[in-house]
Amino acid sequence: MLPILSTVGMSFWQEKLSLKPWTDLLFDTPIFYRMFWNSVFYAFVIVILELCIAVPCAFGLVTAKMRGKKIIFMIYLILMMMPLQVTLLPNYIGLRDMGLINTRMGIILPMIFSAFGIIIMHQYMMNLDEAQIEAARLETSSVLKVLIYVVVAQMKTCIIATAVFIFAECFNMLEQPMLFLKDERLKNLTVFIMNASDYEGKVLFPASVIFLIPVLILYLYFNETLEKGIKL
């Protein structure tokens, strides 16, 4: 808590108690807004797309009767354990070959296939009542209906918790925009904070305070859901 309080305190300090750092940031640094909304955009899009991929993927891994399910899950686990820096270069090469370097898609695409969401969903789905899913399957032949009306309906807390974690991860991402993006207008708030000394005025601390707020709001809203959601 102390670093947060000190960041808030420092944001009102410029040789003496002053609002100057805030006015410098809010009125004199227009690129800040672009980067802030870029962060929000990346985080929202990635959360939605990653959940759309992770839920059916985990459902398939849990319910499908096929060989190699455990191996696939193991690969996902290994992927999740890998440090981000290890996958950055292969991702860069792939994106470069697809012509997606310096595009928003270049940031979104590798993130939506992250293993984190799939693993969390998979572990939660393992605890679901299998009989209920079987019963639903007898009612309808549509797997999608079973997924939406039976599985997703029971997994709301897990989905919300995962969404909050993914949002926080994407909102805080730094390496990907620094490596995959060259255009300043596509970069996110983390890069702004990283390069705050390039801007005139003492904008680092007020920018850090604003940077804290969206994730803090999400946490305060969903703190109970988060606790329940991560109980696997």
Binding site: L26, F27, P30, Y33, F36, W37, I210
Partner: peptide
């Protein structure tokens, strides 16, 4: 944030 995004330049 929305208001300042649009009007910070004018202010």
């Amino acid at each position: 944030m929305i208001f300042l995004t649009f009007f910070s330049r004018s202010l």
